[in-house]
């Protein structure tokens, strides 16, 4: 569970004098996600990023969090927990929710829709896969957990 891992990690880091951790929780709706994203961007792991990496992180997080709202918590309420950590030029994210599991227990393929067909959706997982360097999905009991790494360029 993220709650346990998050607390242990945060304490471990703060004991070591680091400032690269943050835990942000938010209700699983789009207005709360906007506010949660704003808090995440002000947190110590993201505050120090250059503008390009910060923009990439913001898009990546918005897509992951809004997918949870639209699919995992479709039609019901729940909490989203986001743990952010910077390590050696990598932004490491752990995102947990108690919503519906990914279809088939797997990450969506995230194929890019054909631009010529003027698609109004279907870009979310393509963007996540384009911006992340590693993505892992686990389902444990009622909890979905995504571990995502974004390589920072600046």
């Amino acid at each position: 569970m993220l709650a346990e891992i998050g607390v242990v990690s945060v304490m471990g880091c703060s004991a070591a004098g680091g400032s690269g951790f943050a835990l942000v929780t938010m209700p699983g709706d789009s207005v709360s996600v906007r506010a949660g994203l704003e808090r995440a961007l002000k947190s110590s792991p993201l505050r120090g990023l250059g503008p390009d990496d910060r923009g990439r992180a913001e898009v990546l997080l918005a897509e992951v969090l809004n997918n949870i709202v639209e699919h995992a918590y479709e039609g019901c309420e729940g909490e989203i927990r986001l743990l952010l950590r910077m390590e050696a030029g990598r932004l490491c994210l752990v995102i947990e929710d108690e919503g519906l599991a990914m279809p088939g227990g797997q990450l969506p393929s995230g194929q890019l829709p054909e631009a010529e067909c003027l698609p109004e959706g279907g870009f979310g997982w393509f963007l996540i896969r384009a911006l992340a360097s590693e993505i892992t999905y686990f389902r444990r009991g009622r909890t979905n957990r995504l571990d995502i790494v974004m390589a920072c360029e600046q």
Binding site: N66, L118, E120, G124
Partner: peptide
């Protein structure tokens, strides 16, 4: 300053 896939979809919808 910020646009996500929902915002992109909304702009495509305006184009249509």
């Amino acid at each position: 300053n910020f646009l996500d896939s929902s915002g992109l979809g909304a702009i495509v919808a305006v184009m249509k």
